[in-house]
Design a protein around this nucleic acid. Structure first.
Length: 305
DNA sequence: TAGGCATTCTTATGAGAAAC
DNA sequence: GTTTCTCATAAGAATGCCTA
């Protein structure tokens, strides 16, 4: 993994110590197959009580990680920006490779014959990687809300769910969010607006709930009293709130799997998986004949000449 | 209805403190 | 006195809720 230095920098002992902790978190996640965003590293440090949870602290960490990377002390691949990427056209140079990738990418809807349709919605983009990996193995769709969901996306989702309703399916939405005034309110908001737009859904907030806080004991943060939703929250839970990020990836992954297992029809899932495998084999056999097909075409052309 | 503040994410710049 | 480092502020975009 590349730690490339572009500038020289002499960090103070405290900063060196923090860089070491950042690298330790990054290594830990990498071993489990996850990459991190700056925001995610920040929440990990907050949840481990290394730095305070406030805007100033986040900005300082951003500056330190930036300098740490430029000074060659933090891997350039360790933190990713998921909001900016190159758009363009993907080019191919080998038709046979393209046909092979079409075969390996062929996927039937394993939930097609079930009476339930499931989606997992997560409040923050920082956790979409973890949620995505867990959902991928069950072939369940997932969605990163990025705070309050935009009206455009909420309406699109409702239309998607109405189509599922019309084909006789129960739509189940599992939501994961922070345990803070806005995070709790976002669950209510999602359910309310989807219903307003006519979707018939079963909605369940599966994290972060108070029982999980008691079980896993994540470090608390002070509730932001400037948040206009704080009054009701404080009445119910007091002056402490908790980040969803504080739960270990393995805990989140297991939580998602357990909720899928509660609603999935495994026989239906496995039957379609088998059918998918057979179709892929047929496609592979077809691709195997591609080079012979090309040679025949060339021979025909030569004979015409 | 407008204003204030909340969520998501990252980068640029400048002031002040500390080290040499 | 100069250099280096830390910390604070601001910016950008889209959307939400609450209160006066």
């Amino acid at each position: 993994m590349p730690k490339i230095a572009y500038i020289e920098k002499r960090f103070k002992p405290d900063s060196l110590d923090l860089i070491e902790k950042v690298n330790s978190i990054v290594d830990d996640y990498e071993r489990q197959g996850y990459s991190l965003t700056l925001r995610q590293v920040y929440y990990q440090l907050v949840s481990r009580d290394v730095i305070p949870n406030n805007e100033r602290s986040y900005k300082n960490l951003g500056n330190l990680i930036n300098d740490g990377r430029l000074a060659g002390m933090i891997d350039w691949y360790s933190i990713e920006d998921r909001t900016r990427f190159l758009r363009g056209i993907v080019h191919d140079d080998d038709p046979e490779e393209l046909l092979r990738s079409a075969s390996s990418g062929f996927s039937l809807d394993k939930w097609e014959n079930m009476d339930t349709y499931v989606e997992f919605w997560v409040e923050k983009d920082a956790l979409v990687d973890i949620v995505g990996k867990a959902c991928h193995s069950w072939e369940v769709d997932y969605f990163s809300c990025r705070g309050y969901v935009s009206q455009s996306e909420m309406w699109s989702a409702a239309r998607r769910f109405i189509r599922r309703n019309n084909s006789g399916k129960n739509v189940v939405i599992f939501h994961l969010g922070d345990h803070d005034p806005s995070g709790i309110d976002m669950s209510r908001d999602i359910e309310d607006r989807l219903r307003l737009f006519g979707a018939d859904i079963t909605f369940e907030r599966i994290a972060l709930n108070y029982g999980q806080i008691e079980t896993y004991n994540p470090p608390p943060n002070p509730t932001k009293l400037s948040d206009s939703r704080s009054t009701d929250y404080v009445k119910k839970y007091g002056y402490e709130c908790w980040e969803l990020d504080a739960l270990e990836p393995s805990v989140l992954s297991e939580l998602i799997s357990n909720h899928v297992k509660n609603v999935i029809d495994l026989d239906a899932f496995n039957n379609i998986s088998e059918r998918e495998g057979e179709i892929r084999k047929q496609m592979d056999r077809f691709v195997d004949t591609y080079s012979d097909f090309v040679l025949n075409e060339e021979d025909t052309e030569e004979m015409k000449v």
